[in-house]
Simulated assay, not measured.
Amino acid sequence: MDIGTSVITPSESAEDTLPSMFWGLDPIYGVFAKLYIKDILELKKSQPVPGVFFYKTHPITKVDILGTIVQKRERERFFSFGASSPFGLNVLEQLNRINQLENSNSQLELAKVVDPVFTAQIARMLELPYLYRNFYDKTFQIQMDSSDPNQQGEPTLSLQRKIKQFLTQNGVKNFYQQELEAIDSLVCIAEQNCVSLCLHHPSQTSQDPPSSACVSKQIHELFQQAVCALQEEGIIFQKVAAHTELYLVTDAEKELHKVTRKIVQDDSTRPKYVDKGCPFHHIVSCVRHSYSAGVSEAAVQRVLDRLECDSEIVSTMDRHYTVS
């Protein structure tokens, strides 16, 4: 049920732990929280946002309760006073409609549970301690430490998308990482994220701005992470695995597409592959032998997907391919 203000007294108001813009990050926000009745009655009211309450550091808007109904009492929501109108509008009728709508919206939807042996209640009694121990009683906070992989992931993803967009729009066929680090539009994205990471680094004081050395190091590392992510995705690859070597854009490397298609075309006619098609790992092995030993499986898979999209090959079963 939605939490009503009738169960909260003014003295129970509390300052919110975090700004409301961060409440959606809490997995408990917006779900039906299964709380003890005692804790529901003691929820703290949010000052800036009506209808939001707090159990410790968790914003609560709805609760799910289970119990035995022992009493039902209905109370009037408000009184309506009206008079006739000279313009043909029946004010009393309109107020009655509003009253009915308000009453219908305020009704609680109760689901009757037929549970003669108290199975549901026992299950709830066992579930609640687990929920409190693992979720409700744990402090909700946003980790800003740059060593947190989750905090590093979003800046990397942002730069990764921007690099991918840059490669496509400019028809880039190959590049060195240091060349990317000289592109203003890419550096701008990286710089914005890295300044934030440096500001929240444990060694950084709030009074001092982040040093240029800290930001430069973070920018370089962020580019490395983004480039590695693009490699794992198969967007780019290296003929020779080394950080200083040239990166090739998979979609633009026509020779790789040509070699891969020929392997599928030739080997799918062999007796052992004629029925099911060439298996993926066989194609990877042949590509590495005929084209370059440094080609990743992700890059080969991307080439196969592109060839299939262009109707040059077809997949016959799970990761088996033949010519169309």
Rank of each mutant, 00 (worst) to 15 (best):
D2E: 09
I3Y: 00
S6D: 13
S6M: 04
S6C: 08
E12L: 14
F22S: 11
F22E: 05
G24R: 09
L35T: 11
I37M: 05
K38F: 10
L41V: 04
L43A: 10
K45Q: 14
G51H: 05
G51S: 06
V52E: 08
D64E: 09
L66E: 02
T68V: 15
K72Y: 02
K72F: 01
K72A: 08
E74C: 09
E74V: 08
E76S: 15
R77E: 12
F79D: 09
F79H: 04
S80N: 08
P86A: 11
G88K: 05
Q94A: 14
N96Q: 12
I98M: 04
Q100L: 05
L101S: 05
E102V: 12
N103A: 13
S106Q: 10
L108D: 09
E109D: 10
A120C: 07
A120I: 01
F135P: 04
F135E: 03
D148V: 07
P149T: 02
G153T: 15
G153S: 15
E154L: 14
E154V: 15
E154Q: 11
L157T: 15
S158Y: 02
K173F: 05
N174C: 06
F175Q: 05
Q177C: 08
E181M: 14
I183E: 12
S185R: 14
L186P: 09
V187P: 08
C198F: 02
H200Q: 09
S203T: 15
Q204C: 12
Q204P: 13
D208W: 11
P210Q: 07
S211W: 09
S212T: 11
S216N: 12
Q218I: 05
Q224M: 07
A226Y: 11
V227F: 02
E232N: 13
G234E: 03
G234Y: 02
I236K: 02
A241S: 10
A242T: 06
A242D: 03
E245V: 00
Y247H: 11
Y247M: 00
L248I: 04
V249K: 00
V249P: 04
T250H: 02
E253I: 01
H257W: 01
K262W: 01
D266N: 06
T269L: 12
P271Y: 00
K272L: 03
D275M: 06
H281S: 00
H289G: 08
H289A: 12
Y291W: 03
S292I: 03
S296Q: 06
S296Y: 03
R306N: 14
L307E: 04
C309Q: 12
S315D: 01
T316G: 13
